[in-house]
């Protein structure tokens, strides 16, 4: 009896590692958050990053406002950890060279084309397996199958597999309840990405945030428009000469 107590005493010491826990921890690192790669966003989010093992809803109506660039640093980080990332029902074709030049290893990117219930099933399987560190799902392809129950299942699967689950949805669902602990509304504002935090867990510094997802020099350049005429001449001329016109 005394021996057992002594053993308990030893085991309570934080310097004693139990092999079982070590293996579990290696298997599913229970880091609760993953940095977003944008320092201002990290500061704004309650735990300093995206919550891992949770559903994250991104509400956006238009494509091309930087809504995917927002996730690129996260996906890069996931791939660097050796886990894969899955894009489910991407609305367009991912341009392989662009993803590659932005530092995402193509052999870690899995694309799944599917729709409605099959799509949600695939998302759940991928999340549950724990093989993918991040799953990005475009909810438009799931249609009506993506209801509250389906979102709940995704949330549960994400926590089982300890993975990030991003779901893009239209802003029309803003008012409907969601099990996602983090909901962000995205829109463009003068060439920058505007984030509205609709729902979050914990304390938030700001309810909204502006992020630069595009190079700073991408500003409207009337000079380019004026050059159009000269550039489209049938014979090729060096740019230097056309500028002098």
């Amino acid at each position: 009896m005394a021996d057992a107590q002594a053993l308990q005493e030893v085991l309570r010491n934080p310097a004693v590692w139990r092999a079982r826990e070590l293996a579990q921890e290696q298997e599913q690192r229970t880091d609760r958050t993953l940095g977003t790669g944008f320092s201002s966003l990290d500061l704004a989010l309650p735990d300093g990053g995206w919550p891992v093992g949770a559903l994250i809803e991104l509400l956006a109506d238009t494509s091309g406002v930087g809504e995917l660039s927002l996730l690129l640093p996260t996906l890069r980080q996931v791939c660097a950890q050796g886990r894969a990332a899955a894009l489910l029902a991407p609305p367009w074709l991912p341009y392989a060279r662009a993803w590659e030049s932005l530092g995402l290893p193509l052999d870690k990117l899995l694309m799944v084309e599917s729709s409605s219930s099959d799509l949600l099933w695939s998302a759940e399987q991928i999340l549950r397996s724990g093989e993918c560190g991040a799953v990005v799902l475009w909810g438009q392809a799931a249609g009506r199958a993506l209801d509250h129950r389906a979102l709940q299942r995704l949330h549960l699967a994400a926590s089982t597999g300890n993975a990030l689950c991003f779901v893009y949805r239209a802003t029309a669902v803003e008012a409907s309840p969601s099990p996602a602990p983090l909901r962000v509304k995205l829109r463009a504002q003068e060439g920058r990405l505007h984030l509205d935090f609709l729902k979050f867990r914990g304390a938030l510094r700001n309810k909204s945030l502006l992020l630069d997802t595009y190079p700073a020099h991408w500003q409207p350049q009337p000079r380019l428009a004026s050059q159009l005429e000269t550039l489209s001449t049938p014979t090729y001329r060096p740019l230097r000469r056309s500028r002098s016109v």
Partner: peptide, 25 residues
């Protein structure tokens, strides 16, 4: 092994043409 088991499972339901990776040329 976990990865191939996941892929097998997905292929069994969706069909092999629905799952792919991209190669840059």
């Amino acid at each position: 092994i976990g990865w191939t088991q996941l892929i097998d499972k997905l292929v069994a339901r969706l069909g092999s043409d629905k799952l792919y990776k991209l190669r840059a040329v």
